[in-house]
Structures are given as structure tokens and as C-alpha cells.
Design a protein around this nucleic acid. Structure first.
Length: 511
RNA sequence: GGGGCCGUAGCUCAGUGGUUAGAGCAGGGGACUCAUAAUCCCUGGGUCGUGGGUUCGAUCCCCACCGGCCCUACCA
């Protein structure tokens, strides 16, 4: 059985969960659900990143210990993922003992392999950023963001010999063309490596809220250095070699474009330094940018809303869980930036979900209930819907397999459109009860059954509801995909029932 | 300042070194009435950011510029 391991970044607990986090997490969730659907042994990891100066500061400001602070904020992420029906298998917190153990084992391996050394870090410090710059990365000695004079600081640090990995990384990229997708992001990472790699400071003495360096008690690891290793913590690195071997290195990191360097340069180099193969695939996604005239008042009380101001729960409360999941997956292609707007969500909801899918289920269930004695007739082997169904199946399957949920959903909706058109052409509402009518309705029901299978990674709740409305037991995910996702398998075991509209239309601008 | 990505129909986005550049939505016309005023069919609309260059030929390759965005030692 194939193993499939997918991760999101671990989210920094200094920040409340927002739509950007949700975008990444929902995509990873849909991918995990897809792989479970096709029978892969699947592990989906998400979690929170809890070390570093900013967390310590935030805790102090709120008058609690870092531990209490991270407990509170980490919980908020879990609540957000519950609201979005995220099916993670493991939720890691970098403050857990298992993570300390793995980080120390991993970095000790890097140390013993000779890739960590002690030096004095000299840097230009910006008080406003609370951050360091090099002469090259500064604006001629001034902070490129604040424009103020940088002050010379120095600190004794342990360094990672990143510079030793330029050639091995280039070789790895050459040998693994699919390592970073999409290709534009791969090019970005490559040109960064070709531009020259500098050793990097990986420990701090100035703070204590971090993981202790095993061989030097005065230091804690720099937060990114501990954070990246979470992907190994969750699969037992240093604690259970068999488990690690099951999931690594054939794994998938889904990340945002702003952390490309850490995942596509530092992280593979770190793995090499520890004597481990790098992760096999990093899928980079773009950013959602807030567009549209204005977001509804429930989204924010003032104008000029930033995406990071919007809590996922606000959206699921207004539109429902599956519609938000659908929008996040369907609207933009993974890898490029996309547009996020209230109008956009409403449009997708009304056209794709209410008019196309919801209405299709409504019209079919009504006709079957009134003209087929309420039970679902069998489809025809040679139905004219069979061809569009089979092409939707193969296109959607291929798209899910290559991390393109938007294309998979587009293909799936193609079958919905074909089914609506099929009903127009055959006009079953004009037909008398009998075999001919039964055949038409059986074909339509079969198309709907296949749609619910293909769409279930994106909108699992609604698909399960439709599944039961068309008289099937269980849910679309209960069966073996290879045999259930084929034309002609529909057999109702329960009466068809219409039920309330799945997606009541949203009227024009609701204030 | 340095590195990188992007700029295609009213909107959101696909796409390709070569005959008439695509989809969805919105707009226009028609059909139908089973269905959530839903559905189906037909249809208008683009000097593919601007200016050069390479080429028999560029929206796609190169350069410059304009605009948006990301990174530049802890925000998806």
C-alpha cells in the first residue's frame, strides 16, 4: 500500500488564525482526503510553532508564562481547523517533549558530521525590526524597511555550514526535477542557490524560550532551526526508525511562497548534513489578496481589510464550512496568487454550488420521488452520460494527483453541467413512468454519485448528505475508489428523498 | 539597495515560438418549466502592461521601463 505524508507549515502562535492559514490548511486537507479516498495510507500533519522572542514577548505582555500563552493560542488554531472540518492525523506543537528529543538528535547528528561550528556573529541590528541585517541586505547601512541607522551588534553563535551545500543542492535539484513545484518557484529557489549561500547562525544566547543546544547549555536554537524539524518529529525521527522509514523521504510539504527559502534551500541542506535524504516534494502556493469592493461588515468593522484580519470562523459562520472550503480550493490555482473577496465567495456559492450542484440534486430527486416510486433506478451501461462521466473521472483524478484541486473541481463540475444538459435533452418531466424514464433518471443518479465521490475531498459533508439522499448507505469514502469510481455501479438501497435545498441561494448584497 | 515572481476579455483566471488566443462569471438573444426566479442553447467583447530587440514569424525568447507582489536571518 502506498504511503502519503503531507504537511502544512506549523503556524506561528504569535498570530491569530486567519484566512491565509486556512487557505494552506484546506488545500492540504483536501489532498489528504483525496489520498485516503484512493486507498493510500495517509498521514496529514499540521501544528504550531511556539518558540522565539516574539512569543516570549507576547506572553510577558499578557502577564502569563510562555507555556500558558502557547497553550491558549495553539488551541485557537485547533478550533479554527475544527470549524473547517480539517482531518489532520497529528497536530504537533514545537514545545512538546517529542520535538525536543528529535531536534536534539537531528542537530547532534549535524554537529557530529562537522557542519556546525562556533563563531562570533556580527550583524547590523535594527531596533524597530528587532532584527539583524547584513551589509548587503541593508540599504547602505540603513534598515531597508524603516530607513533608520543600523547599529553594529555581535553575539557568539553556533553556525550551520550552509555554504558547503551549494553544489549538493544544485545536484539534488537536477536529479529531482519535481522537487519544487510549480516550476517558477523552483526557478526562484535555484537562482537563490546560484547566487551564493552564506553560513547561518542557528543559535541564540539572548533568549531562553527555545530548545537547548545539547552540547552548549548557554544556547537555544534559533526558532526556524527547530521549526523545520517538526516534519521529522511527527514521524518518529530519532525515536522510531521504522516509523520514519515508512513516511520519509517520499513526503510533501505544502508551503506559502514567503517561506520558500527555508524549505527549498535550508531544509534540504539540513537533511543532507544530518545524513538524511531531503523531502521529495515541496509544493509552493501563492497568496490570496483581498479584492472586491468591500468585505461585508461581519468580516471587519472598518474599511481596508487585510486578509490577515479575517478569522476563518467568521466565514464558515456566514457561508457554511463546505462552501468556504470549495471557494478556497476552486478559485485559484495553487502556486499563483489569487483574489479573495466577499463577492467572489458569493458568486461561487450561487453559481457552482446552488445553481449547478444543489439544483441538479433537487431536480433529480424530485422527479425520482414523483415518477419512479421513490426508489433510484439503475443506470444504463451505454448511456450518453457515460463518456462525460469517464472523462471527468480521469481528468479529476489526474488533477488531484498533481496538486491541482482547482482543475479537479473544474473537471468535476463539467460532469454536473453535462448532467444538467442531459436532462434538458431528455426532458424526463414529460415522460410517462416506465423503463425509458427509469433509464434517464438512473443515469442522472449515477452521474451524481460519481460527482459526490470526486468532490468529497473538497466538500465532504455535503457529499455525504447527497450520497444518502440518493439512497446510498454510508458515505462516498466508504468504498474502494478503484471499483466505486466507475460508471454503472449505482444501486439504491434506500428510498430517494429530496430534503431541504443544499445551498439556499444568497440574495444580492446582504448588509 | 540586491534577488525573484507576476501584469491575457467588464471581473476572476487558463494557455501556446506559427493559420481565426480560451474557460467560468457578468452582459445580450432564444428555449424550457422537473428544479433553489434554477437549467439548456446561441452570442458580443481582448493592439495578450509600455517601448525596443532576436526571428521568416512573438502574447509566449532577450533588454529597458511602468505597475503589483514576495524574499533580503522567526507572518499562510
Amino acid at each position: 500500500m502506498a504511503h502519503y505524508y503531507i504537511t502544512t507549515p506549523i503556524y506561528y502562535v504569535n498570530d491569530a488564525p486567519h484566512v491565509g492559514h486556512a487557505y494552506c490548511t484546506v488545500n492540504a486537507d483536501a489532498m489528504a482526503r483525496w489520498h485516503r479516498l484512493i486507498g493510500d495510507e495517509t498521514k496529514f500533519l499540521t501544528g504550531t510553532d511556539e518558540h522565539g522572542q516574539k512569543v516570549a514577548d507576547a506572553a510577558q505582555k499578557n502577564g502569563v508564562s510562555p507555556r500558558e500563552w502557547t497553550d491558549q493560542t495553539s488551541r485557537r488554531f485547533r478550533e479554527a481547523w475544527d470549524a473547517l472540518n480539517i482531518s489532520y492525523d497529528d497536530f504537533i506543537r514545537t514545545t512538546e517533549p517529542r520535538h525536543y528529543e528529535t531536534v536534539q538528535k537531528f542537530l547532534t547528528a549535524v554537529y557530529e558530521n562537522g557542519y556546525i561550528y562556533k563563531d562570533v556573529y556580527q550583524g547590523l541590528y535594527c531596533v524597530s525590526c528587532e532584527d539583524y541585517y547584513t551589509l548587503e541586505s541593508s540599504d547602505e547601512g540603513r534598515c531597508p524597511i524603516h530607513g533608520r541607522e543600523l547599529t553594529q551588534m555581535q553575539e557568539e553563535n553556533w553556525f550551520f555550514r550552509l555554504s558547503a551545500f551549494a553544489e549538493p543542492l544544485l545536484q539534488y535539484y537536477e536529479d529531482h526535477p519535481g522537487f519544487v513545484t510549480p516550476e517558477t518557484k523552483r526557478n526562484e529557489a535555484l537562482s537563490f542557490i546560484k547566487g551564493g549561500l552564506r553560513d547561518i547562525s542557528i543559535t541564540r544566547t539572548s533568549i531562553s524560550w527555545g530548545i537547548p543546544v545539547p552540547w552548549d547549555a548557554n544556547h537555544v536554537f534559533y526558532v526556524w532551526y527547530d521549526a523545520l524539524i517538526n516534519y521529522l518529529t511527527a514521524i518518529g525521527y530519532g525515536r522510531d526508525d521504522d516509523e520514519t522509514a515508512q513516511w520519509w523521504p517520499t513526503s510533501h510539504h505544502l508551503i506559502g511562497k514567503e517561506i520558500l527559502r527555508f524549505h527549498c534551500v535550508w531544509w534540504p541542506a539540513m537533511c543532507m548534513a544530518a545524513g538524511l535524504d531531503p523531502v521529495s516534494h515541496v509544493q509552493v502556493h501563492g497568496w490570496l489578496l483581498v479584492g472586491g469592493q468591500k468585505l461585508s461588515k461581519t468580516m471587519a468593522s472598518e474599511g481596508n481589510v487585510k486578509l490577515t484580519d479575517i478569522a476563518p470562523v467568521v466565514l464558515t459562520d456566514e457561508f457554511g464550512v463546505d462552501p468556504i472550503r470549495y471557494y478556497l480550493l476552486r478559485e485559484t490555482s495553487l502556486g499563483n496568487d489569487g483574489d479573495f473577496s466577499h463577492e467572489g465567495i458569493t458568486a461561487r456559492y450561487n453559481t457552482d454550488l446552488a445553481n449547478n450542484l444543489g439544483n441538479l440534486v433537487a431536480r433529480v430527486t424530485t422527479i425520482v420521488a414523483t415518477k419512479c416510486a421513490g426508489t433510484g433506478p439503475a443506470p444504463e451501461e451505454a448511456s450518453e452520460l457515460r463518456r462525460p462521466a469517464e472523462s471527468a473521472l480521469s481528468e479529476a483524478q489526474a488533477a488531484w494527483d498533481r496538486f491541482a484541486p482547482n482543475v479537479a473541481l473544474e473537471a468535476t463540475w463539467g460532469l454536473i453541467g453535462a448532467t444538467n444538459a442531459y436532462l434538458e435533452n431528455t426532458a424526463p418531466w414529460k415522460m410517462e413512468p416506465g423503463d425509458a424514464l427509469d433509464a434517464v433518471m438512473g443515469n442522472a443518479l449515477e452521474a451524481i454519485r460519481l460527482v459526490t465521490i470526486l468532490a468529497s475531498p473538497a466538500i465532504p459533508q455535503v457529499c455525504a448528505t447527497i450520497w444518502s439522499r440518493i439512497g446510498l448507505e454510508g458515505s462516498p469514502t466508504d468504498e474502494v475508489f478503484a471499483t466505486s469510481a466507475r460508471w454503472g455501479r449505482y444501486r439504491a438501497t434506500q428510498p430517494i428523498h429530496k430534503g431541504e435545498p443544499l445551498f439556499p441561494r444568497i440574495r444580492a448584497n446582504v448588509e
